[in-house]
C-alpha cells in the first residue's frame, strides 16, 4: 500500500518537475541561453490564469488560455528585450555573453517578481483545476487533476519530441543547437529559428505554469524556487538534453517523495541536494549530458 502511494505520488510530482524544466532545457539546447527568469515566466502564466479564471470569474478554461497567452508574451519579451540585445551587442565579447545573459535574465526575473508582487501582493493563490474530484487507483485516492496533469504533461512532451525529430522546423532547431554557423551558411536566418524556439518555449512555460499553479499554487515568492528547481534538474540531467531532464526530474521527484514518506517531511529537499553534488562531482556533464 505504502509502496503504491509512493509510486503514484512520486510520479505526479516528478512529472510536474519534468514539465517545469522542459522549456528551460530546450531553450538552452537550441540557443545556449540559461534563462534565470524561467520561474518568472511560469508564475506569470499561473498568476494571469488565476486572475482571469478566478478573480475576474471567467472560469478555468479561459483562465488557462489567458495564462498561456501571457507566458508566450513574456517569453517573447524576454527574448526581444533582454536576450537579443545582449547577443547582438558588439561591446560584449562572445566569451562573456553567457555571464551577461545570466545576469540580465536574473535581473529580469527580479523585475517580474517585483511587478507581480506590486500588482497582486505576494500571497499565494491557486489556479482553478480543469477538472475537480478524486478517483481510487487500487485503493489510493488520487485527485483527477493530478492524473490530468500527468496526461497533459506527457502529451506535451510527446508533441515536443515529434516536433523536434519529425518536422522540418525541428530539424532546423536541432541543427541550430549543434552548429549554428553551418546553418547560417546554408542560408537559414538564425533569428527566425531563435524566434520560433522562444515561441515554443513560451507555450511550454505557459502550460507548465498553469498546471503547476493548479497543483502547487503560485505567487511571486515562488519565482526563485521554481527557477532553482528547473536549474537543478536540468544540470543534473545534462544541460540541453531533453531525455536527461526527464530522467533527472523523476530521480529528484522520487527521492524527495521517498524522503518525505520514509524519513521526515521537513528534510525532503536535503538528499536531492547531496545527490546533485555527488553526481556533478563524479560526472560533471550530468546524467545524460554531452560535453
Amino acid at each position: 500500500m505504502l509502496a503504491l502511494q509512493i509510486l503514484i505520488d512520486g510520479f505526479a510530482i516528478s512529472t510536474l518537475y519534468a514539465l517545469g524544466a522542459l522549456g528551460f532545457t530546450l531553450i538552452f539546447g537550441v540557443s545556449g541561453v540559461l534563462n534565470l527568469a524561467h520561474g518568472g515566466l511560469l508564475v506569470v502564466a499561473a498568476m494571469i490564469a488565476w486572475y482571469v479564471g478566478t478573480s475576474l470569474g471567467y472560469g478555468a478554461d479561459w483562465g488557462a488560455l489567458a495564462g498561456l497567452g501571457a507566458a508566450i508574451g513574456a517569453a517573447l519579451l524576454t527574448y526581444g528585450g533582454v536576450v537579443r540585445p545582449i547577443e547582438r551587442s558588439r561591446a560584449i565579447p562572445p566569451r562573456e555573453r553567457e555571464l551577461f545573459v545570466l545576469t540580465a535574465t536574473l535581473l529580469w526575473g527580479v523585475m517580474i517578481q517585483e511587478a507581480l508582487a506590486y500588482a497582486f501582493t505576494d500571497s499565494p493563490v491557486t489556479v482553478q483545476p480543469l477538472i475537480g474530484g478524486t478517483i481510487g487507483i487500487l485503493g489510493v485516492r488520487t485527485p483527477i487533476n493530478e492524473l490530468l496533469i500527468a496526461i497533459i504533461a506527457w502529451a506535451v512532451m510527446g508533441c515536443l519530441w515529434l516536433l523536434v525529430n519529425r518536422t522540418k522546423i525541428g530539424k532546423r532547431l536541432l541543427a541550430a543547437s549543434i552548429n549554428p554557423r553551418a546553418l547560417t551558411l546554408l542560408g537559414f536566418e538564425l533569428g527566425t529559428i531563435y524566434l520560433t524556439v522562444w515561441l515554443i518555449y513560451g507555450v511550454l512555460a505557459g502550460i507548465a505554469g498553469v498546471l503547476l499553479g493548479s497543483f502547487l499554487g503560485t505567487g511571486s515568492d515562488y519565482i526563485p524556487d521554481l527557477t532553482g528547481s528547473a536549474f537543478t534538474i536540468v544540470v543534473l540531467g545534462g544541460l540541453g538534453s531533453v531525455s536527461g531532464t526527464l530522467m533527472a526530474a523523476y530521480v529528484v521527484g522520487y527521492i524527495e517523495t521517498l524522503t518525505a514518506y520514509l524519513i521526515s517531511p521537513s528534510l525532503r529537499d536535503v538528499p536531492a541536494l547531496f545527490l546533485l553534488i555527488i553526481v556533478l562531482y563524479v560526472r560533471p556533464q550530468g546524467l545524460l549530458g554531452r560535453r
Partner: peptide, 12 residues
C-alpha cells in the same frame, strides 16, 4: 567543474 555546473554547486 566550470561554467554553469560550478555555478549550480555554489548555489547548492
Amino acid at each position: 567543474l566550470s561554467g554553469p555546473y560550478l555555478g549550480l554547486i555554489t548555489l547548492v
